[in-house]
């Protein structure tokens, strides 16, 4: 049930981001919508690895094979952690290209 609600929240963010990318006019607003879409996708990938009633993947006591394994999946969290840093870099690059574009073709006070 928790996984389902997590994924519903993530998909609502993704849909709002797609709507913003398709309908807005100025580049700054499109980049904001793209960042919202990226946040939603990160949340969806992290929600795939969630199991109900489990704890964070940090070893604090011994774990055995036969007993219950009380951990969430560590692999999607690693992918999300890499993706967040990459998102900041690509956003900065896109904003730099926006500034360059605005400086070369002045588009009547709009960006």
């Amino acid at each position: 049930m928790e996984t389902f609600s997590f994924s519903i929240c993530a998909f609502s963010l993704i849909l709002v981001g797609i709507f913003g990318v398709l309908t807005r006019k100025d580049i700054i607003r499109i980049l904001l919508a793209l960042n919202i879409l990226e946040t939603g996708i990160n949340m969806l990938v992290a929600a795939v690895g969630y199991f109900k009633g489990s704890s964070a993947p940090i070893l604090t006591s011994n774990i055995t094979r036969d007993g219950f394994l009380p951990f969430v999946d560590p692999l999607p969290q690693a992918l999300v952690l890499a993706s967040i840093v990459i998102g900041a870099g690509t956003t900065a690059m896109a904003l730099a290209i926006t500034l360059k574009h605005y400086r070369t073709h002045k588009t009547e006070g709009k960006a």
Partner: peptide
Amino acid sequence: FSARLEDRVSYRYLF
């Protein structure tokens, strides 16, 4: 959304 951790690759990372 209904897989167990034992079926995934991460089970080996844990052990």
